[in-house]
Simulated scan of single mutants.
Amino acid sequence: MNIIEYADREMLVMNVANKLAGKLKSALSGNDRVSFAVPGGSTPGPIFEMLSATDLDWSRVDVMLTDERWVDVDDPLSNARLVREHLLNDRAAAAQFIPFFRPGLSPGEGAEVVAPSLTDHVPISVLLLGMGDDMHTASLFPGDPSLPDALAADAPLLCPVYPEGQPTARVTLPAHVLDGALNKHLVIFGDEKRAALERAEGLSPEEAPIAAVLDEIEVYWAA
């Protein structure tokens, strides 16, 4: 794990957008298509907006989520909606988006349908993650009864999870897919999350799911 500190969040957003663009361009130089996995939540929105204007061959970029709430794509809680509104605009509108939600299916049924289609998109070329104060990442939550399945080395490429205290069920990429990404990046803000991340280094993935992906990850932090 390598932590890069920024004086303020605006500087972080600008530099991380440039860093991700460079990693995507590098990946495109050696591959016909590349995969870019991104989180939901409020943190990545400004990064997405800056990245969307980047001049690269977005038509060869497959964008997918690290995890998704099991709600319709127009629901305010939908991560797909956030990505559509903040990333898949401007030049990045040419990217191919891989949705996870399937209307009419349960999270388990939907995950079974989607998982085989992800085979061609792993290992992930460029991965961007966030982290909660509880040290969760993607939809890998400590204390979730379904967490052990998503941490398993042979977990399917998309897992249904039912975290307690959350308003909806979710689906998530499993730990082995996240950790197997060729380029891993984590953005966190604030002293509380910085302290939580440092605690996670000494904990197991069951206690702190972010610990499952910390090897060779670039961490970007600003207060």
Rank of each mutant, 00 (worst) to 15 (best):
G108C: 01
E109A: 14
A111T: 09
A111V: 05
E112M: 10
E112L: 09
E112V: 12
E112D: 02
V113T: 12
A115P: 07
A115L: 03
P116F: 06
P116Y: 07
L118Q: 04
T119H: 12
D120M: 02
V122Q: 11
V122Y: 08
V122R: 07
V122F: 13
P123R: 09
I124G: 01
S125V: 01
S125W: 00
V126W: 06
L127G: 09
L128W: 05
L129N: 06
M131N: 09
M131K: 04
M131V: 01
D133Y: 00
H136Q: 09
H136G: 11
H136S: 08
S139N: 14
L140M: 09
L140N: 07
G143P: 08
D144E: 05
D144R: 04
P145D: 10
P145S: 06
S146G: 03
S146E: 13
L147R: 10
L147Q: 06
P148M: 10
P148L: 09
D149V: 09
D149M: 05
D149R: 14
A150F: 07
L151H: 03
A152E: 10
A152D: 15
P156F: 05
P156R: 03
L158P: 10
L158T: 07
C159T: 09
P160E: 06
P160K: 06
Y162L: 03
P163Y: 00
P163F: 03
G165R: 08
P167G: 08
P167T: 08
T168W: 00
A169K: 00
V171I: 11
T172V: 01
L173N: 02
P174Q: 13
A175C: 00
A175S: 12
H176V: 02
V177F: 04
L178G: 07
L178F: 02
L178N: 09
G180P: 09
G180D: 06
G180E: 02
A181F: 02
N183Q: 15
K184W: 09
H185W: 00
L186W: 11
L186N: 03
L186R: 10
L186V: 11
F189V: 10
G190P: 06
G190K: 13
D191Y: 06
K193T: 07
R194P: 03
A195L: 12
L197R: 08
R199D: 15
E201V: 14
E201M: 15
L203A: 14
P205I: 14
P205K: 06
E207P: 01
E207D: 13
E207W: 00
P209R: 11
A211L: 08
A211T: 02
V213C: 15
L214F: 14
L214M: 15
L214Q: 12
D215W: 07
